[in-house]
């Protein structure tokens, strides 16, 4: 046997061996065995000095090629084994992607707050200030300056929680009309204001009455404010809060602090205006009261009603929320059942 035959044999046998190796450790051992200092190739190269000068280069070339071949076979095998190992590991790591996501803490605004914020944002965008007033109010602002003197029959319309004869829980946000009118400096421009807040009525709590609820008052006073402006503004509120497909209509009504006074109805949510039990077959649902500020209210606050005038409106966020979401009991808003509160979390 020549050296060359030996190497040839090693090459053939070992290449097959390499392919059969099943794990990385054994492969490494085989590599040392074949290609290490004591391995057959190193040995063969060492034995080269016994060869003639002619044969040496040829044999050297051959020996190197065998070594390269084996090395490459080992590399290939190593990659294969690594890949298999990784695949196996990934397989073991497989999870049930249908298990629930981990809960995170997230609270949310009260549905009435959402409506108030929406109204505030709408009016801020139109240049209104947002003002808040006292919940414990003077009779003077709550009634007298709103054109409701002591013996006025409309005082029966709103039963009042009095604290003393002159101090009461405000029954409406309207006193903020009087308070801001008194203070406003018209030389600095028009008064455009909304005032959201809590109001109180001496009512027994039931599905449609609450002794505590919310209102958003609005007032605009300048030299050229018209009923048409009121109509346009109310339409905007309806569109913003409910959507463009809702129309409003105005009907005559009565409030001591506005003249003319109107009630605004909005297209029925339930039937879209065709008529149903919810809207008593009229296609309309009453949503807010408004009107042109009564000259007496302006004069009592020291504003010249010959020069200045404008409109005022009062919106009930509780009623809006009930209509918008079909909530059938106003008490839900104040009992704070977590299951109720967390329902209104969808944006838009």
């Amino acid at each position: 046997m020549t050296l060359r035959d030996d190497l040839e044999k090693i090459r053939q046998e070992r290449e097959k061996n390499i392919k059969d190796v099943g794990d990385l450790k054994k492969l490494d051992a085989l590599r040392v065995e074949l290609l290490g200092k004591k391995g057959p190739i190193t040995q063969a190269l060492r034995g080269m000095r016994n060869l003639s000068a002619d044969e040496r280069p040829k044999f050297g070339q051959f020996a190197n090629s065998v070594r390269d071949e084996l090395q490459s076979a080992i590399e290939t095998r190593r990659d294969e084994l690594k890949k298999a190992l990784l695949n196996k590991q990934l397989q073991n790591e497989t999870i049930d992607v249908t298990l629930p996501g981990k809960p995170v803490a997230q609270g949310q605004p009260h549905v009435i707050q959402q409506i108030i914020d929406q109204i505030e944002d709408l009016f801020i965008g139109m240049g209104y200030q947002v003002l808040s007033g006292p919940e414990v109010e003077e009779d003077k602002y709550n009634f007298e300056m709103m054109n409701l003197p002591k013996d006025h029959p409309a005082r029966d319309m709103q039963d009042t929680f009095y604290i003393t004869k002159e101090i009461l829980m405000r029954t409406q946000t309207s006193p903020m009309q009087a308070r801001t009118l008194e203070k406003h400096d018209f030389s600095k421009g028009p008064l455009k204001m909304i005032s959201p807040g809590v109001v109180y009525r001496r009512d027994t709590d039931d599905p449609t009455h609450s002794h505590q609820f919310h209102q958003v008052e609005g007032i605009v006073i300048d030299k050229h404010i018209t009923m048409a402006d009121l109509k346009g503004t109310l339409e905007l509120i309806a569109h913003e809060l409910f959507g463009d497909r809702f129309d409003i209509r105005l009907r005559p009504s009565y409030f001591p602090f506005t003249e003319p006074s109107v009630e605004a109805d909005i297209t029925c949510f339930n039937c879209g205006g065709k008529g149903c039990a919810v809207c008593k077959y009229t296609g309309w649902i009453e949503v807010l009261g408004a009107g042109m500020v009564h000259p007496n209210v302006l004069e009592m606050a020291g504003v010249d009603s010959e020069v200045y005038g404008g409109f005022a409106f009062g919106v009930g966020p509780d009623r809006f929320a009930m209509l918008k979401y079909g909530v059938d009991d106003i008490r839900n808003f104040y009992l704070n059942d977590v299951r109720f509160l967390t329902q209104f979390s969808k944006k838009g």
């Binding site: 505030e120 009016f123 801020i124 965008g125 139109m126 240049g127 209104y128 200030q129 947002v130 421009g189 028009p190 455009k192 605009v220 300048d222 030299k223 050229h224 404010i225 018209t226 009923m227 048409a228 402006d229 109509k231 346009g232 503004t233 339409e235 905007l236 209509r249 105005l250 009907r251 005559p252 003319p260 109107v262 404008g310």
Partner: peptide
Amino acid sequence: ARIYGYDKIPSTLPSGPTTVGALT
């Protein structure tokens, strides 16, 4: 207004000097 009909009253927005609306 009521005899003429509220439906026939046009729909506009307040005109006049601009005011800045912002939360305090």
